[in-house]
Each structure stands twice: as structure tokens, then as C-alpha cells.
Design a protein around this nucleic acid. Structure first.
Lengths: 219, 219
DNA sequence: TGTACATCAGTGAACGCGCGTTCACTGATGTAC
DNA sequence: TGTACATCAGTGAACGCGCGTTCACTGATGTAC
């Protein structure tokens, strides 16, 4: 394919000119449309046909890219976990400048994801999608969680070896509290509950108290 | 209405005999059908028509009891919060035999609800239903949460007055951790994640550590 | 470089389906007299 | 106690709709020669 022409086409699309027979990037366009629809009406209010319409193609076109409606939804969830994992990795930043501060950033990133990507969040956690639906899906989810575990291990390593709590248990606790605050108070959709403080502050205090309970002082 | 006859009708229905022109308890039957459908296919896979079919009435009959599909769903969620509140109240049992033990029971009751009533749980928390959708709904939800707050106040009261943490903040932390564990690991539907221990034990340890962080020792 | 052709990603018409909702109706219930 | 009647909770047929999915097709792309 003529590369210059490709670039020209991309430019055309960007500037809203009429596309030709081929869409060029339908797969991505469908995902984007799905996210928009989920954000507006919840995972239930998303239909294959409407996504096609939003992308400006015939209702049969999506079948070239996804087996069926559920396959698209599963792909949205998988991508969600991938972005989520990337966000968490960036926030953790290898534990810099200090494991505790990095853990705080991790929590903030979790809340920020729930707030700014409510569609991804709902697809990932509230779609009745079995966690082991597909290999790629469960791996992406597992990877995101592994960042939390890694952070907990780094925090445990700050303690004398004979006083360290099990990092695995700790990571589940941190995950649960963060997920609870995100799902109840930080989510970016209509289901968010009111809270008399910033969710970030609630989370920071919660983690601090929990870590103190573990004997991790002097942060 | 003849009371004996009413009792007889109820008996007839119980023994599965043919009902007459009037259903007798359609409202309840529709709620029950909705719960069954939600449990099987998620909140998205529930339709007014199918609920009517399950209750053995024509598709127009439900309109005598609910304005529309969403009204039924909202009623399910409201009832869910009422049952939830009742369960939590029973578990707390006025703080008997000891506030900490009662708090433990409270957490167990939360997890048990998520496990045994996944349909209610999904309708309450994952239906994209705004928390302030209706007065009755938000009151029922608020009441359930107030049990948690009450428990936290009782626990705070065990501490010297000058060391007490704000019970309000504490109740949000307890809620978040419990809700996180329930939603991720204890729920009774396909979205439950595997956990290398009983969710109850994870929660107990988490609460214990958190309380220790607050300075609530000697439990 | 030019051309023939395989492959790919779209079309658009069609289908059967179940849904939500409405309507005029009817049978049962409970009550006023 | 009997009867007439208002009210209530159902019926069932009908509607328009959008959905998911299929099919034979076609236009564009990229490549082999």
C-alpha cells in the first residue's frame, strides 16, 4: 500500500471528509462507539447495531471484526484492563520516590480511572463477564492486580523481616478498600454516591490507618 | 372479601392449582420473576415481557402494578436495600455480645448478602440507578449504611474520648473495604473472583488491622 | 512499470424475533343499599 | 340477606421498533508476475 496515500487518507478522515468504501479503522471506531454508548446508558444500553451506526457503517460491517456483540464487549473490557494496568504501572513508577508515596499515587490512579473512564470501569467490573472469560482477559486483569501486589511487597520490604505481614493478604486488602471507594464514591457515572470529602483523601487516610495497623509506621 | 376464601385461594396457589382470572399476588410474583431473571442473566437480561410470562400473565398485566420496566427494577433495588438493612440490623444485634464481635457479624452479613442474593446486590449497586433515584430508594440505602455508622460509633465509644477517630470517616472505610471484598470476591454470580482464602477471613483480618491502626487494641 | 487477480472489508436488503406499550375489553371482587 | 353496581386486575390482539444475524454482492487494496 502506498504509504503517502495512507497518511493522506488518515488526514482526510480527521478533517471529516467523506470516507470511501473502506472505513480504514473500523475496529477502533467500534470500540470507541461502544465506550461512548456504555458511558451514556450503561453496559446494558449498548447495541451492536447502534455502534455500527455511530461508526457510519452498515449493521453487517462489525461482523468482519467481532464474532458477536459479546465479543466486542469482552474486547472493551480487556482493553480496559490493559489501560488500567498501564495507568497503575505509571503511577507506581517503580516505587519512586518512596514506596509509601508511590502507593498513594497508585490509589489515586485507581480512583482516577474509575472517574475518567466509567465505561471501561463498568465493562471491566460490572458486566457479569466471568473473570476467566478468555485468556487475554484474565491475563490483563491479573497483570493490573500484580502491580498492587508488587507495591505491597515493596512496602513489606521496609519492615524487619520477622515482622512482615504476608504481602499477598495485604494486596487483597488494599485492592478491596481501593475498589470499594472507587465503586461507591469515585466512579464517573450516575451511580456515584455522595461523600463529604474527596475520595482521594478518604483512601489516603484508610491506607495510612491500615498500614499503621500492620506496624508500618514512620511514613 | 371472604377471609376463609382468601386463605383457600392462597392454598390453591401453593398447591399449583389453576388460578382464576385474577392472579392474586402479581406484584410479588413479578418481583420474584425479576430476581430470578437477574440472577440468571444479569440486570441487562431482564425484560418486562419475560417477567410477565414467568408469572403466567399476559404482557399487559404488569402495567397494572408498575409504570414501566425501570419502575419494577427500581422497586427491586429498593426492596433489596430494605432486606439488606434488616439483615445488617439483625447481625449487629445492638452491639451484642461485644461491639467488635458484632462488627465482625455485620461484615459477615454483608458478604452473605452479596453471596446469597446476587440479583438484589446487582440491582442495588450495579444497575446504573442513581442513588437519589427516588425518596424511598435513597432512604432505604441510607438506612442500611446507618447501621454501619452506628457500629462504628459504638466501637469508637470504647476508646478514650480524646483518642476517638471520627466515626463518620471510619464508617466509610469499613463500608468501602467490606463492599470491595463483597463485590470482588464474595458475590454469588459469575463475576466473582477467585481468592486463596475465605472472603470472611480476609475481611476479618482487614477490619482487625484497620482498627488496630486506629488505636483500637485489645479486642 | 503495468496488469491480472486474490483477498479483504465493506454494502444493503432481508429475516424472524422479542420487546415495550396501547387499547378496548371482561371477569371477579367487594360494597352500598 | 340479596342485589346492583363501581372498581379493580386481568385479557389478548395489535402496533411499530430496533435488534442480531445472514447472505450474496461489490469495490478497494495489495501483490505476483
Amino acid at each position: 500500500m502506498n504509504h503517502v496515500k495512507t497518511l493522506y487518507m488518515a488526514w482526510s478522515k480527521k478533517s471529516g471528509e467523506r470516507r470511501g468504501y473502506h472505513h480504514g479503522n473500523l475496529r477502533e471506531a467500534l470500540i470507541a462507539a461502544a465506550l461512548k454508548l456504555i458511558a451514556e446508558k450503561g453496559p446494558a444500553g449498548f447495541s451492536f447495531a447502534e455502534a455500527a451506526r455511530a461508526a457510519g457503517v452498515s449493521p453487517a460491517a462489525p461482523y468482519r471484526h467481532f464474532r458477536d456483540r459479546d465479543a466486542l464487549l469482552a474486547d472493551v473490557a480487556r482493553r480496559g484492563f490493559e489501560r488500567f494496568g498501564a495507568d497503575l504501572t505509571r503511577a507506581w513508577d517503580g516505587g519512586q520516590p518512596h514506596p509509601y508515596r508511590a502507593m498513594e499515587n497508585l490509589g489515586r490512579a485507581y480512583l482516577a480511572f474509575a472517574r475518567t473512564q466509567p465505561a471501561y470501569y463498568a465493562a471491566m467490573f460490572e458486566c457479569q463477564l466471568p473473570p476467566d472469560a478468555s485468556r487475554e482477559f484474565s491475563q490483563a486483569a491479573e497483570h493490573a492486580f500484580s502491580i498492587l501486589r508488587q507495591a505491597c511487597e515493596a512496602l513489606c520490604a521496609l519492615m524487619p523481616a520477622d515482622q512482615r505481614p504476608p504481602a499477598s493478604m495485604m494486596s487483597y486488602h488494599v485492592w478491596a478498600m481501593t475498589h470499594g471507594i472507587a465503586s461507591l464514591f469515585a466512579r464517573g457515572d450516575v451511580a456515584r454516591r455522595k461523600l463529604p470529602m474527596a475520595p482521594e483523601n478518604l483512601l489516603e487516610a484508610g491506607l495510612l490507618l491500615y498500614l499503621r495497623g500492620l506496624g508500618l509506621e514512620g511514613l
